[in-house]
Design a protein around this nucleic acid. Sequence first.
RNA 1: CGAGGUGUGGCGCAGUUGGUAGCGCACCUGGUUUGGGACCAGGGGGUCGUCAGUUCGAGCCUGGCCACCUCGACCA
Length: 492
Amino acid sequence: MSKAITPREQDYSQWYIDIVLKAGLADYSAVKGCMVIKPYGYALWENMRDALDKMFKETGHVNAYFPLFVPKSLFEAEEKNAEGFAKECAVVTHYRLKTDPNNKGKLMVDPDAKLEEELVVRPTSEAIIWNTYKGWIQSYRDLPILVNQWANVVRWEMRTRLFLRTAEFLWQEGHTAHATKQEALEETVKMLHVYGEFAENFMAMPVIKGVKSANERFAGAEDTYCIEAMMQDGKALQAGTSHFLGQNFAKAFNVTYLDKNNKQEFVWATSWGVSTRLIGALIMTHSDNEGLVLPPKLAPIQVVIVPIAKNEEQLAAVRARMQPLMDELKAKGIRLKFDDADNRTPGWKFAEYEMKGVPVRIAVGPRDLENNTVELARRDERTKEVKSMDGLAAGIEQLLVEIQENLYKRSIQLRETMITPVDTYEDFKKVLSEKGGFISAHWDGTSETEEAIKTETKATIRCIPLDQVAEDGVCIYSGKPSKGRVLFAMAY
RNA sequence: CGAGGUGUGGCGCAGUUGGUAGCGCACCUGGUUUGGGACCAGGGGGUCGUCAGUUCGAGCCUGGCCACCUCGACCA
């Protein structure tokens, strides 16, 4: 592994790629646009998944699993949804290979094994799930259905980027069915807040909650709610979405229930999801030129102990001395690694764990054993100090909390400087090109204006914030009246 | 799809005028080391992306093809 990563200020994109590869999160694969998530990256995903899963269950959801394949006839049932995803669908047309008679040792698709009906590899699961729900729902007593699925999906993107946009990715998708519009709307917003809480409390990543404009809405949704995060380079990243689907899918799949008055009604729906893209968001929120920086709550390794020893005896002595501390930390549920690998020097390990973003590092050698101390280093601020071994476990537990808070504080401070209100289109373009970030501006509410601004500047409306302040103004582009500001940005 | 780049040992790369492949890291063995990416000695590992052509001879020259990466276009 080479020593340096490309500095952020030199080439942000390359910096990001370097971190993903050199921190051992993921790697390119033999399949174009698809990546291998390596054990360290997967451990990070598992921690995110577990935290989210717990929150879903606490809000009354259960997990289930639906097929990877969606028969084309089902996929096309909800027209807008199908149309929105059509251009990026992988399609299975055959179910068998055979040896190629003209090419020894090679295989070919068996033309006799053509499927009666093509199978779409799910880019999202509304179709297969709503086709299933049809059989689950007869009465209002069957509602609500609050199901989540952890799965992979495939979207044949023209251009991919590690974690941020890959052809196959891991995610969760919640799909709920409700008796009333009100209830479905409440669910949509509830899950948006779950995502917001996860982003802020676990990822230490501030987000803006809002609603998408019609242009940016999920295909097949009545309304798309989102959490939008700001990356260090001034570009926005959609970190999660929660959709109010109205009765679109119920109508497309004819899913009805009998209400208390024995009347047939269409079911109301929501869907919501976050993906491995969050790992990309995490990287671009906290990391620096030394590598990854991880919030303690999600870090696969929270504390690493690097022993320094000249021989086996010294190593044994360090281990023996650290054992009580390790037991204590483990009892507190802290994820810990004691790295006694003898083929690496301490210096190598220091650099390596910095690259991997481990929040707290402890170095202990003979000097420390004599003085009853350790060297304690924190990744977020890259500081280190000598601490007494007494009361160390409690101190470390506290330090992890501090680091988590510090990361959040740091990123929200940066984010605040990255929201710029503007009142003219000239200023809008100036801020966009010179500073980036979110631009808070009046908009007349029309798709035409949004489209025109996008064509001219590449910036899009990231969201209409939920906490939008009512304020009379005029649209920066059309000059028409506006009742509040929306957030524009360049986006990933 | 457009522009650019890269394909040589696990990784990163060099390879001159065409003469039968080398360096660093990693790996294995032994030893010395270990407080910010250690050192010495020895060792193993390569159909040079692929197909064809030119040539006595091709990693190198010619032509085709393929793959991947980066940047654009596109992106709920």
